[in-house]
């Protein structure tokens, strides 16, 4: 294992621990949806996005806003927010609101929570790049269930039609949504062919694999080689890293009780050893 990959895995474990701590302390929130986005978020914040001093230059939008504990946990490891906040998720006057809120936390580039809206804002950021003569890359993570929102396809149509290269559309394809699996709720069919038909180049990969994430995000930066907008479909596991939460819709937004909490931390520690 390379040094970089080792470091990456270590951060991912810490982030998973933060997520569980936060959600246990809050007594509500979305564990399954947060745990599936850990690797991509860690890669983006630690290895991909440009920072100028402590201020992020590139833009990031968590369109699936309910996974925000994962983002807070990454910001915590990146030391962009205070560790004391770990017990302040979802409580009154806390910067860590239940969904990303720019008014409470300046590290958030775009507040979300009503699904389907992030990709359109990404287009706004991209057009602003042209007018303001900046070159910020824009990363937007959407859930697979979220793709049922019509606005996503309005945005996809626009990105495909205008061949926008500086937006990286990332799908956290964890296969579950609020109540049931995506297939049992409203089957989205072949996502790759859908995005391809909208004018995207689509990469499908293991969303928990460092090398694959690294390769695809490096490819995103190579705009000269690319002719089409990029969509990265991350094949992920809902609840990844905590065995009893994995591959299940049950933990979409279930409260973590005391024994769940202890079991989760044990699981994360075990995974770290292996």
């Amino acid at each position: 294992m390379t040094k970089l990959k080792k470091e990456f895995n270590k951060i991912c474990s810490k982030v998973r621990r933060n997520i569980i701590e936060m959600l246990f302390s809050a007594g509500s929130g979305h564990p399954g949806s947060s745990l599936s986005t850990v690797e991509i978020l860690v890669y983006l914040y630690f290895f991909q996005m440009k920072f100028k001093r402590k201020k992020k230059y590139d833009k990031f939008i968590l369109s699936k806003g309910h996974a925000v504990p994962a983002l807070y946990s990454v910001l915590l490891e990146k030391k962009l927010i205070n560790r004391k906040l770990i017990n302040k998720l979802r409580i009154i006057d806390s910067p860590l609101q239940g969904h990303p809120d720019m008014n409470y936390l300046k590290e958030i580039d775009f507040g979300t929570g009503a699904l389907g809206q992030g990709l359109s804002a990404a287009i706004g950021f991209s057009i602003a790049n042209k007018i303001n003569k900046t070159s910020k890359n824009i990363y937007c993570i959407l859930g697979d269930g979220e793709l049922q929102e019509g606005q996503v396809w309005e945005a996809a149509m626009f990105i495909g039609s205008k061949k926008i290269l500086d937006i990286c559309t990332i799908i956290d394809n964890n296969k579950f949504q609020n109540e049931l699996s995506v297939i049992d709720t409203l089957n989205m069919g072949n996502l790759k062919s859908k995005f391809t038909s909208f004018g995207f180049e689509v990469l499908k990969l293991d969303g928990h694999n460092f090398n694959q994430i690294k390769k695809s995000l490096n490819y995103f930066l190579n705009k000269k080689k690319r002719k089409k907008p990029l969509c990265i479909i991350l094949n992920t596991i809902k609840g990844k890293g905590v065995k009893f939460m994995e591959h299940s819709g049950v933990w979409h937004s279930k409260k973590i009780e005391n024994n769940d909490y202890l079991k989760s931390l044990k699981d994360i520690a075990n995974n770290e050893k292996n």
Partner: peptide, 9 residues
């Protein structure tokens, strides 16, 4: 959404 992104830029 595009307008929001532009305004925040």
């Amino acid at each position: 959404g595009i307008s929001a992104g532009l305004a925040l830029s």
